[in-house]
Design a protein around this nucleic acid. Structure first.
Lengths: 180, 180
DNA sequence: GTCTATACGAAGATAGAC
DNA sequence: GTCTATCTTCGTATAGAC
């Protein structure tokens, strides 16, 4: 159910996703929602964001453990490319959706901030391991996350993969020159 | 009224903004809404997005006409910093909000794509004028837009300006080395 | 615990008077 | 053209039976 919520947040955003949609999508029992989520939609949004953030963070960490940052970047963007194209550019990042959720879901926003911070730390660690000074690894990690997320937004807007491709090509060049 | 809609989209997104909110914010006459916007909320969202996109595009073009890309970047981000801090990090980019609007506002999404494309062309032109090869100016412009928009999302999530500052510092370095 | 039914409010859209 | 009143739909949340 948390998983379903995260999936729907990708396409419709937090505000645009109704409780009934989540129930339908997850085929969960209708009557027990407020048993498991006494905090209502706020709580569901928060837990879904946290779950998605940690899942993606684990994926990032695993990739960076097995390969260098540049190879991981390619893999990661390949996944995004698949998500975008398979959804006809309707699906985006659930963490971005949560970050932009309004006052009605403050918990989701906080969970999004935590996810971004975790990703940044992981990526910065990998950059440092690859030889970058600590003071440079952090900001570079922020650039990577911001640019990729922004590239996904642009790709969704124009319903084409090119913006993300261009962003990643540029990031690759930046990382190469930074790590050189 | 279009202006009010764009303002509200910044904070609440397209789905999160109610018609009544726009009326209240703009102090516009209640009864004549469907006179001016027979297409309802879809039409309002589309026109507000187009208006905001053109206004921001004009600002970008004006800045790039008077100064070099690096100086314009600083000015532009200074404006964003003010918007973010004055709104306590609740306000973001209305074009991003429109890009993430669901199926219920396809016109807004299209207008967002047009805005991004226009900005990209303007910025790429400035990079070319500054001496960059045409084949490199376009992708670099995409990186700039994606990274800044992503930085704004990150800043809103963590309610702090640092992500945007870091992104811009990195972009400045990238542009310097590209234009060198 | 899970179900159905429903209360309550919000939001988009329309009707008809002025 | 602009107003008030209202219709309908939808969405969150709750109540009470099983």
């Amino acid at each position: 159910m948390i998983q379903s919520a995260a999936t729907l947040f990708r396409e419709r955003g937090v505000e645009g996703t109704a409780f009934a949609d989540v129930l339908e999508h997850s085929a969960a029992p209708r009557g027990s929602v407020y048993h498991h989520f006494p905090g209502g939609k706020q709580q569901l949004a928060e837990e879904a964001t946290r779950w998605a953030g940690e899942a993606m963070g684990a994926g990032i960490a695993a990739a960076l453990r097995e390969e260098d940052p540049l190879a991981a970047l390619d893999d990661f963007v390949g996944l995004w490319r698949a998500v975008l194209e398979e959804s006809d550019f309707r699906a985006g990042c659930p963490i971005v959706a949560a970050a932009l959720a309004g006052e009605r879901s403050p918990g989701a926003r906080a969970a999004a901030a935590a996810a971004f911070a975790e990703w940044r730390a992981t990526l910065a660690g990998a950059f440092a391991e690859a030889g970058l000074a600590a003071a440079q690894a952090g900001p570079l990690a922020t650039l990577f996350i911001a640019a990729i997320e922004g590239g996904i937004v642009l790709a969704r807007a124009q319903r084409g993969i090119e913006p993300l491709t261009e962003v990643v090509d540029e990031l690759r060049a930046v990382a190469r020159s930074a790590l050189a």
